[in-house]
C-alpha cells in the first residue's frame, strides 16, 4: 500500500509528509528536527509538546508531536514548556500542607483548559477539585499516567500547577505508606539456607554453574 503524501506546516515551514507518520518523524524526514524539542519518541517524556490547528475549522489543540499522526492541512506550533521548581513532598499529606506549598490550589476557576490540554487524557481539573477536598488517593490515581509535560500548567490562567501538585500528592502518599512485610524481610538475617545455596550456585566452571542454576531454579531449594 502506498502512503499518500500530505502537506503540513510546522513553525511556518511547509513540509510534505507521509500520511500515518508522526509529526516528529515528518520533521526528521524534512531535516527540520530542531523545530520541536524531542526526547523519548515514545509518548512518555513530555518533551515534544506542540499545538496543532486545522484550516478547515476542526478542533485542534495541544498534543505530543511524537504521538500525533500528520494530517493534510495541519498546522503545528512548537509549544515547549519549561519546568518550574517542585515543592518537597510531606509525610501524612493534608490539604493544608498542599496549600502551604502550592498556594494557588484554590484559585482554579473551573475552566477546564487543563483537562483539554492534557495529552494523556487525565481529568486534570476534576483532579484539582479532588485535591481541594483532600481526596488524595483518587487524585494520585488520576496522575498515574502523568508525563509531566507541563501543558496543564502552561495553559492555566490562574497559575494553578496541576502536575506539580499531582506528583506532590503521589510522593507524599507513597512516603507515608508502611510496608511491614518488606521491612520484616529486610531485618531478618536470611532463612538459614542462604549460605549453602550460594555455595552450590557459585561452585564450578561456567558450564557447571549454568547446569546448577538450571536445576536449582525449578524448585528454588536444594532439597
Amino acid at each position: 500500500m502506498e502512503f499518500p503524501s500530505v502537506q503540513i506546516v510546522v513553525a511556518g515551514n511547509i513540509i510534505q509528509a507521509r500520511a500515518g507518520e508522526t509529526i516528529v518523524h515528518a520533521l526528521w524526514a524534512a531535516g527540520l528536527a530542531r523545530h520541536v524539542q524531542t526526547g523519548c519518541v515514545g509518548g512518555v517524556c513530555g518533551a515534544c509538546t506542540v499545538s496543532v490547528r486545522f484550516k478547515d475549522g476542526r478542533k485542534g489543540g495541544t498534543d505530543l508531536a511524537c504521538m500525533r499522526p500528520v494530517e493534510d492541512g495541519m498546522e503545528v506550533f512548537p509549544f515547549a514548556v519549561d519546568p518550574v521548581p517542585p515543592a518537597p513532598p510531606a509525610n501524612e499529606p493534608t490539604v493544608e500542607k498542599l496549600r502551604a506549598v502550592y498556594p494557588t490550589l484554590d484559585r482554579c476557576a473551573k475552566c477546564g483548559s487543563c483537562t483539554a490540554a492534557c495529552p494523556m487524557s487525565i481529568p486534570v481539573m476534576d483532579s484539582v477539585l479532588r485535591m481541594q477536598r483532600g481526596e488524595f488517593e483518587a487524585a494520585a490515581e488520576d496522575f498515574t499516567t502523568c508525563i509531566h509535560c507541563g501543558l496543564c500548567r502552561a495553559v492555566c490562567e490562574d497559575k494553578v500547577k496541576p502536575h506539580n501538585m499531582g506528583i506532590w500528592v503521589r510522593r507524599s502518599l507513597g512516603m507515608s505508606q508502611d510496608y511491614p512485610a518488606l521491612d520484616q524481610r529486610l531485618v531478618s538475617a536470611g532463612d538459614g539456607r542462604a549460605e549453602s545455596e550460594w555455595a552450590y550456585l557459585l561452585t564450578g566452571d561456567e558450564a557447571e554453574r549454568l547446569r546448577r542454576a538450571k536445576s536449582f531454579r525449578e524448585k528454588g531449594t536444594l532439597s
Binding site: 512485610a181 518488606l182 524481610r185 532463612d191 539456607r193 542462604a194 545455596e197 550460594w198 550456585l201 561456567e206 558450564a207 554453574r209 549454568l210 546448577r212 542454576a213 538450571k214 536449582f216 531454579r217 528454588g220
Partner: peptide
C-alpha cells in the same frame, strides 16, 4: 519478595537466562 522466592532462586533464573555469561 514472593513466598516461594529467594535471592538465590532469583539469581538462578537470571543466570540461566543470561546463558551463564
Amino acid at each position: 519478595l514472593g513466598p516461594d522466592d529467594s535471592t538465590r532462586r532469583r539469581f538462578a533464573d537470571s543466570y540461566a537466562g543470561g546463558h551463564g555469561k
